[in-house]
Design a protein around this nucleic acid. Sequence first.
DNA 1: TAAAGTCTGTACCTTTCGTTACAGAGATTC
DNA 2: GAATCTCTGTAACGAAAGGTACAGACTTTA
Lengths: 194, 194
Amino acid sequence: MARIVAEKADVVPVLAEIFRQHGYEGTSIGIISERSGLGRGSLYHFFPGGKADMAAAVLDHVSDWFEVNVFRPLEVLPPEAAINTMLDAVLTYFEGGQRVCIVGAFALDQTRDRFAGAVGSYFARWVAVLAACLRRMEPSAGTCQEQAHRMIATIQGGIVLARATGDAETFRTLINELRPNEGRTNHGAFKAHD
Amino acid sequence: MARIVAEKADVVPVLAEIFRQHGYEGTSIGIISERSGLGRGSLYHFFPGGKADMAAAVLDHVSDWFEVNVFRPLEVLPPEAAINTMLDAVLTYFEGGQRVCIVGAFALDQTRDRFAGAVGSYFARWVAVLAACLRRMEPSAGTCQEQAHRMIATIQGGIVLARATGDAETFRTLINELRPNEGRTNHGAFKAHD
DNA sequence: TAAAGTCTGTACCTTTCGTTACAGAGATTC
DNA sequence: GAATCTCTGTAACGAAAGGTACAGACTTTA
């Protein structure tokens, strides 16, 4: 038999892309086998738990990526730089909003219940770490958690909006408006009048 | 045969709820038949195009609801009242973010391509009509479209976030912060400093 | 009341789903 | 170099998928 040795680590990103495109229910083992080039044998060798196992590995992988590229920087970098790093990462990772956040996508249907732990902790950690960063930035502010919610919601909703309208520029503008370092402009829903 | 005459109009809301919960791919005719109480015969009588036909009817129905309860008010009411009406509708309709926006959910996977027209025009109309309302409110502002994007993204992302964390209060706070009529507070991501 | 039209339940079709079984090829170990 | 382990391809499984066929029962029209 032709044997091209595959490693689990190489397969997970491919799986991630497939789940991103088709969603959990829309992804079939057939598609996975075809797009990854791995037969069913290999697939079930790496992921004995089947499809759910594959999706769980993808969620882990995504969480790790955000841990390194977003959450950790939010903790260790100076606040303004941290937030800019986060937004830069978001802009490239989600490809102008055309590439979906699987965790967010999973949250929208019953898939959420299956992976409630991973989905919940991903967003909980993001909120916690971003709120803490905002607090370091403006210790006087008592609404850091709400600000964090608003920023994350803008990112997630920006993906929905950008994909629905097919407009990547919408997403980029939305994200860049969240930056803290462009001359203290008002980033609110309504312009400040006074 | 037992004959309980059903009307298409009565069935569509039930379908909507099912698609909301399971997503397009996760919804099977079996589930639909079971939950709606209609046999396959009736289902395919009302929707000759099958599952896609059913989902299309749901999208139409949702669009109509928003047309009446959100878009039209945004056009005809005084701006501030219009926006408050929209936010009230959003709060009750999405049930604290636990109930999903099907249009938004469809936008996140390949289902979008199947219903690109309905998905695109739903959001395009929302953006257009909200931006126009904001312009009437503050004719000087040149960023009404961006503000509209931000508000709609907050709503859609708020649903994602609320469902992921299971916290309905997060969603309510997020929505209420979008209101224009509470003493000109700054609703931005960052507090205004000057 | 006869005819036509509308709705409904059931049985069945084909395809695809996720999963399993398993033999064999290649690498690794002793 | 035999034994073992890791990986791979193929075939097949039962279950569930979406969809069709169609006769029967009720309404409506005439």
